[in-house]
Design a protein around this nucleic acid. Structure first.
Lengths: 251, 251
DNA sequence: TCCGGGTTTTGGACTATACCAACCAGGCGA
DNA sequence: TCGCCTGGTTGGTATAGTCCAAAACCCGGA
């Protein structure tokens, strides 16, 4: 809503809106909408755009940040700006695992284990698993990709008591199926919390993105028929990578 | 993850991190976490922070944007930066309306009707309501507040055929109860879609926020027992104003 | 006490410039 | 052929200004 009018320069490339950086944004957005730029395509470099529009580089970047916030484009550090692919549709009430989910939408999933260690329960985890402080737990961290692009990182915590020697398995596949096949643990109920957030620190680094990028934090607690916590999973998604859809009865 | 080291100046205020704007961020974040700055409090002006830290104003703003993206602070245009209040917890599967929901969490809700008009169904709406293109519909736009802060704007669409003369009512209260009391329409099933987005254009203006602020789009389609669409509601939330929580059975 | 109008403050937009580090591609040598 | 080095390209960080419009504030008059 802030408006600073200024003699709008006529620019080779056709920006001529109220705010320069919004003109910039509209120009690129139109090229994406028109199919001229397709998902995965790389935009011209900031300096090229600058030369084409005669704007300051800071203004160019302002427009690019806008598009990034809208999920239309994303950046690869010091490589360039790229058009975002379409998001994965996510229904937390009918979640059957990342891999089958992504494949069902005609996309190519991949899972990359980052590390797996034994840790001691802190206050939060002790509460979740209903175990004493310091109880042994497994922490598995993974990065997951869609069509080769990293879209989320996750921290999975599993109770050592329920799945001893879990770390001898490889985690590039479905963890849920390992728990089921090897330990007879099957999930019958989920609790899911989601919150828009900013990706910072470790998560931002793991997704190779700038700290501060908007994201979605999804916390899933999975229970078996006995009410035991089988899996406690914290996922950090790129905000442009998913769309949530829930169907629910009232009350 | 990008790191540019630079002779870190020793600064009255105690920033001395790798990246200046992250130092800035950490400084403020610590003051919020420590309770020195409480929800609703106003931060010192950018120029004051600049004087205190001897950084360029752009760098100060970079740090503030970071905090904004994290939902820790928000801005009121040309008024200042403020510490964000805690978010509303939202369970789409047990939604009983904004007012009771917010009150149950000890907060003060308010609803402000913006406009209400009769429109003709476009392709999207025709599909939703299963009516021909151009069919008459009511469009109601409202802004909703928590503790005096605007947190969402919504576009509600209702079929004229189901609720004739709806516009003679006032929309500063629950619409669902009007539909029930006056037209005998009660909602038995909801479909909800959510997607992280950027607030732009009309939504950004209505929330008096800068275009590009991260937000969450919630689309709710409400059906009655006969499967008719009673209400089609598109909500645009500030990203820092809510947290989603869903409980769900598997499969 | 309330209202209106000027002044000050505040964030918003924009320019211009500089330097840095990660990335990438191309060439050279083993 | 493979791997290393190197230099150009790209985005990331930071500085130092300028001008603008909306808010906020203050003061004087009704």
């Amino acid at each position: 809503m802030p408006r600073t009018q200024r003699p709008t320069v006529d620019i080779p490339g056709g920006l001529a809106e109220g705010l320069q950086y919004l003109g910039m944004r509209n120009h690129i957005a139109a090229r994406i909408a028109g199919g001229e730029l397709k998902p995965g395509d790389r935009l011209p470099s900031e300096r090229l755009l600058q030369a084409a529009t005669r704007l300051a580089r800071g203004t160019i970047r302002e427009g690019l940040f806008q598009l990034e916030a809208e999920g239309l484009i994303y950046r690869r550090d010091r490589s360039g700006w790229y058009v975002s692919p379409s998001p994965i549709v996510y229904d937390p009430t009918r979640w059957e695992g990342f891999i089958s989910y992504v494949e069902a939408q005609g996309r190519r999933p991949a899972t990359e284990p980052l590390d797996a260690t034994e840790i001691a329960a802190d206050a939060l985890l002790a509460g979740v698993f209903d175990r004493p402080l310091g109880a042994p737990l497994y922490l598995i961290r993974r990065r997951r990709h869609v069509d080769g692009r990293a879209v989320l990182v996750e921290h999975i915590v599993v109770d050592v008591a329920l799945a001893p020697d879990l770390l001898k398995f490889s985690f590039d596949q479905s963890l849920t199926s390992i728990l089921k096949a090897q330990y007879g643990l099957s999930v019958t109920r989920n609790k899911i919390e989601m919150q828009p957030c900013a990706l910072t620190g470790w998560e931002a680094e793991a997704l190779r993105t700038k700290s501060g990028l908007p994201g979605l934090k999804v916390v899933r607690t999975s229970y078996d028929a006995l009410g035991r916590v089988v899996e406690f999973d914290r996922e950090y998604w790129r905000h442009d990578a998913l769309k949530i859809s829930v169907e629910a009865r009232v009350r």
